[in-house]
């Protein structure tokens, strides 16, 4: 009881200072730099005054930016949709149908795809989806089509498939956690009050697991909007997304100001969508104590 609140607060500050310093140097400072660069003029790898909104004017008026932003959002939307739809049954199965002592093992098994480098997994998807690849051989072997579907030639679709596979485990975990928190007696109550298992799922389990679903949506949606590697590797750069455009502006055109403006624009859109989701989440989180 010798410690007064102020000494406690000081001790607390001392404790968090290393991570706080790290956060300021590695997150806040670069972010501030990007924000600053975006309102400067960029030329031949350097930026200069005066402050200007020209970059943002270009961003809003030139069709290429809008087109690639839309593509990124659409790819992200479908990746998120596919991931959550695939992840929910897996999470449900592990939470409701796996013996408690085996749940940890199942979650461990779900992480197996991460044991392989993402680059290698992308390369494998190229082999599977490419012309006369595994998918084509199987489909043609079964006599479903006469010509090679060659999914890889459809850049957006192959990017979606590859990303959905990569992010599925990320989505399983938050959904699993929210399902674990559903009081099992609520499901019995639903059936006791006359509902079938399916209706009980729709009226009780699903709404109560929505916070997990929304967390999964955010975890998948946010990083996939800015994904750079997949479009580069899967489509050989022929189907660029917004992050690829940033790379071009930053490194090829050496216009860091424009690159920064694109980054800030993309960040703003992702932030707005995320906040909307978080608010929706809050409505449901408010329903649970």
């Amino acid at each position: 009881m010798a410690q007064t609140p102020s000494t406690e607060a000081r001790a607390g500050l001392k404790l968090i200072s290393p991570p706080a310093l790290y956060a300021i140097l590695m997150l806040a400072a670069p972010l501030a730099t990007v924000l600053l660069y975006s309102v400067l003029t960029g030329e031949k790898g350097s930026v200069s005054l005066p402050l200007t909104l020209d970059n943002y004017h270009d961003l809003l008026t030139k069709p290429v930016y809008r087109a690639l932003m839309w593509r990124s959002l659409i790819v992200s939307f479908f990746v998120t949709l596919a991931t959550v739809i695939l992840a929910y049954p897996i999470a449900y199965f592990v939470s409701f149908h796996v013996a408690p002592s085996r749940k940890a093992l199942w979650l461990f098994l779900i992480t197996i795809p991460f044991w392989t480098s993402y680059i290698i997994r992308v390369a494998l998807w190229r082999t599977i989806l490419g012309y006369d690849g595994i998918f084509d051989s199987v489909v043609m072997g079964l006599g479903i089509t006469d010509t090679q579907p060659n999914i890889l030639s459809n850049g957006v679709l192959s990017i979606i498939i590859t990303l959905a596979h990569a992010y599925a485990p990320f989505a399983v975990l938050p959904i699993f956690v929210s399902l674990e928190k559903v009081d099992r007696s609520l499901l019995e109550a639903g059936q006791d009050l006359g509902e079938s298992r399916w209706m009980t799922f729709l009226r009780v389990t699903l709404p109560l697991s929505l916070p997990g679903v929304i967390a999964a949506v955010l975890i998948v949606f946010i990083p996939t909007v800015g994904d750079y590697v997949t479009p580069e590797l899967i489509g050989g750069g022929k189907t660029p997304m917004i992050a690829n455009l940033m790379e071009v502006a930053m490194l090829k055109q050496r216009d860091q100001a424009m690159g920064s403006a694109i980054a800030v624009g993309a960040m703003t859109i992702v932030a707005l969508i995320s906040v909307a989701f978080v608010l929706w989440n809050k409505r449901y989180l408010g329903g649970r104590k």
């Binding site: 007696s185 609520l186 109550a189 009050l193 079938s196 709404p207 109560l208 449901y284 329903g287 649970r288």
Partner: peptide, 17 residues
């Protein structure tokens, strides 16, 4: 769900949402 019985659960099982 087809029995003419209803239950008051020990935890009450009130739907929190």
């Amino acid at each position: 769900n087809a029995r003419p019985t209803n239950m008051v659960f020990q935890s009450y099982a009130i739907f929190p949402h």
